[in-house]
Design a protein around this nucleic acid. Structure first.
Lengths: 211, 211, 211, 211
DNA sequence: CATGAATGAGTGTTCATTCAT
DNA sequence: TATGAATGAACACTCATTCAT
């Protein structure tokens, strides 16, 4: 699907406003104004507000697939290193596409099987499959221990990053970073999250639980 | 603040619908219908939809404070045990008040300093303070290592549990638990999350990072 | 169903505008303005524009049933007289409720099975049944001939009166009655139509067709 | 006026949809889609939706003039036969151009002096003039009685046929002809209407009213 | 104290039409 | 000549809120 300049403007405006205000909180007039186009263009191009949301998803998810596939075949790096690369990749993606991820978070909270909910489901499933392979490879080689709840592990990765993004104002405040430059803060978050998750994952993947 | 029966019915209905549909997605008519009261009652009792949201918060946050205070003085249990109790408590609270926590998640995503956002901020700050004390006690005693990013640790706790709740349908599906009884599934989540977080926290609190 | 003053005002305004402009041609704003009420009242009272149309029908059809029932039992008047009374009644009803009849005509032209179309269908069926009895009584008594296509006969009655109403401007013009007082013209139409139909019906009912 | 293929397609599509849904009920998009042309073509070719309606009229009325002119001079057939031929012709025209006639009926119901209303007016006036001559010839020859309200007579002809077309579904239903083939049903209507009207007109034209 | 009635602003969407090419 | 893109106005309808009682 190739989009025109105006269509891209609409999608970006929608991404921003859906992230900020939610689907119901952002009116098509808001979006049209933000995109600097006529209100009617949204129906004209996308059919409806719902379809626009789907377009936002399809547009943003194209760039969001984790680069696990290439990692799997690479034999020059250790299994743990692969996981660490994955973490870096995920954290980066999340931080650089905060708006879209906020939309995803919101959509997952909705108690209905919207078309978008299905798209999210498939996206997550695909990601999970890839990671599963990566972990299982490590398990076969003996690098990782057995009995790893991969879904739970992923829940911690996704959850921790999501929560950090969601509550970044809070994080800034309690760490007295309120006046830090936005870019610098993102770098900091990236570094902290990355190290934190790598540490946790090493624990999950390699240390036997002692009860 | 003492609420009448109808007021409580409204607050509960609002809690349910705000959780399901979000603030903008749930109309006062919906809420009034769910609570089986006249539409005008909501403005009449609470002033406005916004104020109703605040009332929901004030009502639900009263029961949500973590029982850290008592824990702190208890000398019969180890520092790690205290943390574990805390985890259990938090997981329980979250699972038993999913609706309210969904509302909180949503509200934190909003890009405005709403009164509710402030309430959340204060709640989190209070919780953080208590936990900080608990951790610092452990550090002083030598049970916990130095250089713990408590906020990051909390981010993982809150994030993991949030994510689990948000994506519980996904968790069910990929683990083939779709036909499991709801109560049983909640128990399972509780157990899994608890063990998982205890394991992680032990790592964070006691093991020195090896780079 | 009891309607309030405002509801009646809306129904009357709708009747007028639906008759003048058709269902699609009359906007709810037009109707609200004509009825001197807020636009939202229409949805509030009737649910939707479609439902308003149905309300118009149900309201107007209550007063429109032909008084055939009483006629049937009356033995003091001849069968032909009964038919003549029926004609008078029908012509009167039509002329005094021109607006509603215009709506009916329009609705019958629509190529869809609208709820209103069904109401019309039932109304016509009921009328037809009653008239059938009246004619059959006359046939049994020998006053009317056999082999009468009652539906065709009714088609002529309804069609002639409808056409007269529809083209009354034309009738005025070609007969140079353009400056005649409206009331007087209605009287004239009534008289002409009545005499004309009685003449036709006498032919249909009593004279054997000669081919 | 010569129309191109696309223009004819538009006119035919418009004829169909105006008949089915009315002027306001049929959108230019519907029409363009039905005609398989670009939406802009309609404004481009006809100027506006209103002008398109006028074009529909001008196009369809060219084929609709009754063949009275030739009849007038024919001396080989009786006056009553001439009237009967006229009836056959009219019934045929109506049945074969139901769509256009439905449009005419609707337009006459509108309470405004639209250009189309004027076209209808002129068409009817022309028809009336011709028929008047035909009748007056018969009166002069003594074949028809004096004091015939020709407009009223025409009202019955037009009204009966219109009503039959409008309510043909009803006619089918009450006569249990619902599964009759469409072509066969049209033939039946044609035969019934023709015979019925001839019978009525003979009464109107030749029998003295007895009061 | 409680509520049906009422309101004006706002919702997403469709409209007939025009513009740039 | 022909058309996809674009537009502003209008559409039916819903919103949170207020008012009169």
């Amino acid at each position: 699907m190739e989009y025109s300049g105006k269509q891209i403007a609409i999608i970006n405006a929608a991404t921003k406003l859906f992230a900020e205000k939610g689907f119901d909180g952002a009116s098509v007039r808001d979006i049209a104004h933000e995109a600097d186009v006529n209100v009617a263009m949204i129906s004209y191009y996308f059919g409806s507000k719902e379809k626009l949301m789907e377009a936002v998803f399809e547009d943003k998810t194209n760039n969001i697939k984790l680069k696990v596939e290439n990692l799997l075949q690479d034999e020059g790096i250790s299994h743990l290193q692969k996981v660490n690369i994955l973490i870096d990749d995920y954290v980066d993606k999340f931080i650089h596409q905060q708006e879209f991820h906020k939309i995803m978070m919101r959509e997952q909270l909705i108690d209905k099987n919207t078309p978008v909910a299905c798209l999210i489901h498939e996206l997550k499933k695909r990601n999970l499959e890839s990671i599963k392979k990566l972990i299982q490879d490590g398990q076969k080689s003996g690098a990782f221990k057995k009995n790893i709840d991969i879904v739970l592990m992923m829940t911690t990765m996704v959850g921790t990053v999501s929560q950090m993004i969601t509550a970044q104002h809070f994080y800034k405040k309690v760490n007295n970073l309120e006046h830090m430059d936005e870019m610098e803060f993102q770098k900091l978050m990236r570094k902290k999250l990355s190290a934190h998750l790598k540490n946790l994952f090493k624990q999950i993947l390699t240390t036997d639980e002692q009860r």
